[in-house]
């Protein structure tokens, strides 16, 4: 039972982490209608920036600030130079152009940092465990990720539903002409939203640095997971992204933790291990296919826009 609680917490942690990435991606899609494969590159940019900042300054706080800043700037440049021209294009063009961006950013990172993974150490203050329940110590750093992710989720909720910026954003997703008529610079608004999404991805990258390794291509694996999240949640919906992220995080973690044991009850152990590992890695894709077959537009399709 204790183990189950711990694994559930691990699942929530992964979910919250995925939400940081999914929020930006789904926001960008929901408002500008752009499908951005290079979102993972922004995550990578954040991770490299924080590793670099930590190396230069030795301060983890600075590193965590550098990550979203750098990713935001890269994102802004990306929007102005490429993404902006894709708003009116179809999804195929968007997929291909942003695929080109991935290739470009991966090679740029390889040229500037080499192909070897970089490593960041967790600041000693966070490198310990707390006992949430007796007998279940939990790493402080992972707890920090959960808290940071929940804070961002709360902030996003307030921002979008309560603030003027939020109402502009919501209007932008439905009626661009009206916004322009009101004298609002839609181009600027879009660029800022894109940069904001990039900052969230960069922040996630900064947080991931000390936990995982910082390396070329780190964005791609997580990108696919993130897409699964927003597709499950309903593309364009922040609420959906949150639900989808938790669902994927928990399904993935519990699958990895308990599938081998379950299968061993039915199959010889040698086979069970391999099959369980295979099934565990397929689990989220099966989940996604299942949900899409059940609800083709995801769990929370946004009202304003059709599933397209």
């Amino acid at each position: 039972m204790l183990l189950f609680f711990e694994q559930l917490l691990n699942g929530v942690q992964l979910g919250v982490f995925l939400f940081l990435l999914a929020a930006g991606l789904t926001l960008i899609f929901g408002i500008m209608g752009v499908i951005n494969l290079a979102h993972g590159s922004l995550y990578m940019a954040g991770a490299f920036a924080s590793a670099l900042a930590l190396r230069l300054s030795g301060s983890f706080t600075l590193a965590l600030i550098a990550a979203p800043l750098a990713a935001g700037l890269v994102g802004l440049a990306m929007e102005v130079i490429v993404i902006r021209r894709l708003y009116a294009r179809d999804h195929l063009d968007q997929v291909l152009a942003t695929f080109g961006l991935i290739l470009f950013f991966n090679e740029i990172a390889a040229i500037s940092f080499g192909r070897q993974p970089l490593f960041m150490n967790i600041p000693p203050a966070l490198n310990s465990t707390v006992e949430l329940l007796p007998g279940a110590p939990y790493p402080v750093y992972r707890l920090l990720i959960i808290i940071a992710g929940l804070l961002v989720a709360g902030l996003l909720y307030v921002l979008i539903s309560r603030s003027r910026a939020g109402s502009l954003i919501r209007a932008g997703s439905t009626d661009q002409e009206m916004l322009s008529a009101l004298g609002i610079n839609v181009k600027m608004l879009f660029a800022l939203v894109f940069a904001f999404g990039a900052m969230l991805a960069g922040f996630a990258g900064g947080l991931a640095g000390p936990l995982l390794s910082v390396e070329i291509g780190m964005g791609e694996n997580i990108l696919i997971l993130t897409f699964v999240v927003i597709v499950i949640g309903g593309i364009g919906s922040i609420r959906g992204a949150f639900a989808g992220a938790l669902l994927v995080g928990i399904a993935d973690t519990l699958g990895r933790a308990f599938l081998p044991g379950l299968l061993k009850l039915m199959l010889p152990p040698a086979e069970a291990d391999g099959i369980a590992a295979g099934l565990a890695s397929m689990a989220i894709y099966i989940l996604m296919a299942g949900i899409l077959i059940w609800r083709p537009a995801g769990l929370f399709p946004p009202q304003g826009r059709s599933g397209a």
């Binding site: 899609f29 499908i35 999804h91 997929v95 897409f227 699964v228 597709v231 593309i235 996604m288 296919a289 899409l292 077959i293 083709p296 537009a297 995801g298 599933g307 397209a308």
Partner: peptide, 10 residues
């Protein structure tokens, strides 16, 4: 059963 982006992703 899906279309658009959802089709790409599924």
């Amino acid at each position: 059963r899906t279309s658009g982006v959802h089709f790409i992703m599924i």
